[in-house]
Amino acid sequence: MSPTRSTRALRAVDAPQSTLSAAAGELIDADPLFVRERTAASELPDPAPLVSNLARSVVEVISGVRDIEQLSRWVTDDVYRHLLIRTQHAARARQARRRPTRRPNFVELSVRIQATTENIVDAVVVLDFGARVRAVTVRLEGLDRRWRASAIHVL
């Protein structure tokens, strides 16, 4: 008796995550259609508006007033997962302290951008929240003819 199609699908779902991701990675790497294409910074638009908007958006996501899905197009999968975890921790902390979700009030003090390699740009955005000043660091990579954030940190 051979396994039916639904049984095979069930076995794939029950398989350990590392096995599935390794298998998926092999398939994606083997297929040239899914390989990310690096794009030189000279072929891309000015990153300053994107860096400024990403910094503002990340602060709003962490504070709970913006949905993280709105950033998915502009960040890599690793950044998305990291931001999702940080957002969940911030939501739990607000709930434990019984504080409502409020839109952060801040002023952008400065944006500094430096090209490190042909397709990578590092940036720092300094935000003034009144009682405190924070820096948001962003690393943009030129992938598939657009900028994507491969690292974002709120300091």
Results as ranks from 00 to 15, higher is better:
142 G>C: 07
21 S>N: 08
150 S>L: 11
55 A>E: 05
108 E>S: 11
82 H>Y: 07
93 A>M: 10
54 L>M: 12
137 T>N: 04
84 L>I: 03
11 R>I: 04
150 S>F: 04
29 D>Y: 06
142 G>L: 14
99 R>V: 14
150 S>E: 07
130 G>I: 06
6 S>D: 04
39 T>A: 07
21 S>T: 12
121 V>D: 00
69 E>W: 02
51 V>C: 12
38 R>V: 11
153 H>T: 08
39 T>D: 02
38 R>C: 00
147 W>D: 03
96 A>W: 02
87 T>I: 08
142 G>H: 06
15 A>R: 15
134 R>F: 03
120 I>D: 06
13 V>D: 02
71 L>M: 09
21 S>I: 08
98 R>G: 08
59 V>G: 05
125 V>G: 03
111 V>D: 00
90 A>P: 11
61 V>Y: 01
20 L>P: 00
155 L>Q: 10
73 R>E: 06
70 Q>L: 14
120 I>Q: 07
48 A>L: 14
67 D>Y: 15
142 G>D: 09
99 R>I: 15
107 V>W: 04
108 E>W: 06
155 L>W: 03
118 E>G: 08
80 Y>L: 14
79 V>N: 02
7 T>F: 06
20 L>C: 12
50 L>E: 02
94 R>N: 05
135 A>C: 05
71 L>Y: 05
93 A>S: 09
96 A>Q: 09
118 E>W: 09
131 A>M: 08
140 L>T: 02
11 R>W: 11
73 R>K: 07
144 D>A: 13
58 V>K: 07
41 A>H: 10
57 S>K: 12
58 V>I: 09
62 I>M: 10
96 A>R: 13
31 D>V: 13
15 A>F: 07
102 R>W: 04
22 A>Q: 09
154 V>L: 14
140 L>C: 12
59 V>A: 07
117 T>Y: 00
41 A>P: 04
73 R>N: 02
6 S>H: 04
127 L>R: 05
53 N>Y: 10
72 S>I: 02
69 E>I: 09
103 R>S: 08
111 V>F: 01
18 S>E: 08
88 Q>K: 15
130 G>L: 09
150 S>D: 09
32 P>N: 01
29 D>T: 12
73 R>P: 00
49 P>A: 06
150 S>P: 02
5 R>C: 01
134 R>H: 13
114 Q>R: 15
6 S>P: 00
70 Q>W: 06
103 R>A: 11
111 V>P: 01
137 T>D: 01
30 A>Y: 07
70 Q>M: 09
42 S>Y: 05
33 L>E: 13
118 E>K: 13
11 R>V: 08
154 V>I: 13
81 R>F: 08
50 L>M: 13
148 R>G: 00
28 I>P: 00
64 G>L: 08
125 V>C: 13
152 I>C: 11
132 R>Q: 09
54 L>A: 08
82 H>P: 00
149 A>F: 08
149 A>K: 07
98 R>I: 10
41 A>M: 06
91 A>M: 10
55 A>F: 04
6 S>Q: 06
56 R>V: 11
132 R>G: 00
44 L>H: 06
12 A>I: 01
64 G>N: 05
67 D>W: 15
44 L>R: 10
53 N>E: 13
138 V>K: 03
23 A>N: 01
96 A>M: 09
63 S>Y: 11
110 S>E: 15
65 V>D: 03
43 E>M: 05
